[in-house]
Structure formats: C-alpha cells, structure tokens
C-alpha cells in the first residue's frame, strides 16, 4: 500500500484567531484566512493544517471526547495507490469517492480519514550541514547560523493519537494499510511508518482511556537542529509556552521541541529523524523518561558571562 503519510490535518476549533496567531508564529504560511472561517496553514512543501470553527458544517463529525482533530488526509503516491486503498477498505466499510478525487472513510476507532494522491511539492532544499574534524560539511566561508535565518517547517511529519485500543489501531494501520512497526514503547504503543515513506514514524499511538481519544500532538520536520532551536527560541521570545524540550528522542533520533497550542494538542518541531526500510528490526523499550529521550534541555533568556562587573562607583 503506497501511502506517504499525512498531507493535511483538519481541526474544528473554538478560537480561530488564536490558532492563526499560534500557527503563523510556528512558521506555517496562512492561506485564505479569515477570523470567521479559518484557513489553511502550509509547510514549505504544501502539507499542513486546515483550521475551521468547531461548528463549521463542512467538517466531519467530532469525536465525543472534545478533541479538535476532525480529519486526517493521508497522501498516497498515485491513482493506482488510491484505488488500492479503496479496494482494501471497501471490503468492510463505506468508502466515499468525493468529487475532488479523494476518498473518505473511518478507521476502526472512529477517527475520520481521507486519502488523496498527495499534493505535496518536493523541495529543492539542502539539509543543515555541519562541520566536523577532518570532515567539513559546509564550504569554507559559509557560516552555520545567523540570527535572522529562515526556520520554517518543511513538511508535516507525524501525528500522535490517544487511542483506547492499541490492538485495533495496529490491526487497521498495519494489517489493512500496510504500515510497518518501526519500534514500540511498551506501555504506550507502537511507532509506524507507511510503505512509501522511509521516516521512522508518521504515526504513533498511545494507549489511553476512552474519554481521552483524540490527537496528542502533531509535528513538522525542520531542516535541522539549528532551525529547530531557532524556531523554538523565537516562540519562547514571543511568549508562547514550551511543553517539552528541546531534546532528542531515542526512537527515531529526532530532535524535538513541543509547544502547547489552542488546537487542544501539542505542536512539535522535529528534525533529523532516522529513516528505515524493511530490513530494520523493530526495537522495544518500556515507556518512560529514559526511553523517551537521549537528553532534555530547557530554554532560558539570552545571557553572556562577559568580563564580570566593572569597578563600583
């Protein structure tokens, strides 16, 4: 099943202008925004978020838990891949073929899903380059950081869901849609990647009581750790509040920095995630602080030691 991953995540929110403020500060490009109706918020490759009012009649039904996530739109590589999804899921559920060519259905836990031939535009952008002894990554005279360098989310990376039944979630995404389990945090759940995406994960499930079902966080990939640190620092300087990070996860190796948001979930910057193929042997570790990160740091205001206090008087 040639699925790439999330193209678009659709939310029904209570405070559209707050979400606009947050997502533009996060670095997504607003498109067609109005305070009454919401808008699209796009990463550099055209993947991203759609923000609507909670009572917008165009939205699929909300989960009973209050989660603001209303729809995941998953991108597939081509029309044949879309037809393969329709044929597989059409065996046991209603799959709507919409006028725009997309498919609409539900997973086995009531999360609304759409599938479409991906609309993402591949980027001609280099990864962040680092210099190491005997192995320079950047040409001479090229500096590694400037205060005003761009630090924009490049693409939607992954979504993490609170799910009441991990077996049902895995049964759907692995066994029906062909996702691969890359690693598992025992006590929480598995990381999954779809077959047409080498990223360590586009989905991660965390087992929770039913009243918590919904989105835990979403993340966009940055061009490297420096972009992640700059983007997160700019959020902090503008009064946005960190939830967790910056740090570096173990499973996936991605750098992370999570921010609380008016979307009812955390929104993460990530960078430098591992990639895998089917030769990878999944790992397992008990969920907890040790398995969750290689290291964790906390932001502080800029400071410099200088030469100490001058003479008094």
């Amino acid at each position: 099943m040639q699925i790439i991953g999330p193209d678009l995540l659709v939310f029904g929110v209570d405070d559209v202008p707050a979400c606009h403020d947050f997502l533009t500060a996060y670095g997504l490009e607003p498109q067609g925004y109005s305070p009454e109706k919401g808008g699209l918020y796009l990463a550099l490759d055209g993947t991203g978020l759609e923000i609507r009012r909670r009572d917008d009649p165009s939205l699929p039904p909300a989960l009973k838990t209050g989660s603001m996530l209303r729809l995941q739109v998953l991108g597939v590589v081509d029309q044949a891949a879309l037809e393969a999804v329709a044929a597989e899921l059409g065996r046991d559920r209603l799959v709507l073929h919409l006028a725009d060519g997309s498919l609409r259905t539900q997973d086995d836990q009531g999360f609304e899903l759409a599938f479409r031939v991906t609309t993402r535009t591949p980027l001609e952008l280099e990864a962040e380059k680092i210099n190491a002894p005997y192995h320079p990554g950047r040409p001479v005279n090229v500096v590694g950081v400037t205060q005003d360098m761009p630090a924009k989310p490049r693409t939607l990376s992954h979504i993490v869901l609170f799910t009441p039944d991990i077996d049902v979630a895995v049964g759907f995404y692995r066994d029906r849609l062909g996702f691969r389990i890359t690693d598992t945090l025992t006590g929480a759940g598995p990381f999954l990647r779809p077959q047409a995406n080498a990223d360590h994960h586009t989905h991660f499930f965390i087992r929770t009581p039913e009243y918590m079902q919904g989105i835990e966080h979403l993340a966009c990939h940055m061009g490297g750790p420096t972009e992640l640190m700059l983007a997160g620092s700019r959020m902090m300087e503008n009064g946005f509040e960190s939830f967790w990070g910056p740090g570096r996860h173990k499973f996936g190796s991605n750098w992370f920095w999570y921010f609380k948001s008016p979307l009812g979930c955390n929104v993460e910057f990530d960078a430098d995630m591992d990639t895998h193929d089917d030769d990878w042997a999944p790992r397992e570790a008990p969920m907890g602080p040790e398995a969750s990160q290689a290291f964790l740091m906390q932001w502080r205001k800029k400071w410099a030691p200088g030469g100490g206090p001058g003479p008094k008087g």
Binding site: G66, S67, M68, G214, E216, E241, K260, G264, C265, N266
Partner: peptide
C-alpha cells in the same frame, strides 16, 4: 480553564 497540552477543561 484549559490545559493546552491536551485540551483538558
């Protein structure tokens, strides 16, 4: 009051 990590009210 809301916790904006996961939307609890």
């Amino acid at each position: 009051l809301a916790c904006h990590a996961h939307g609890a009210w």
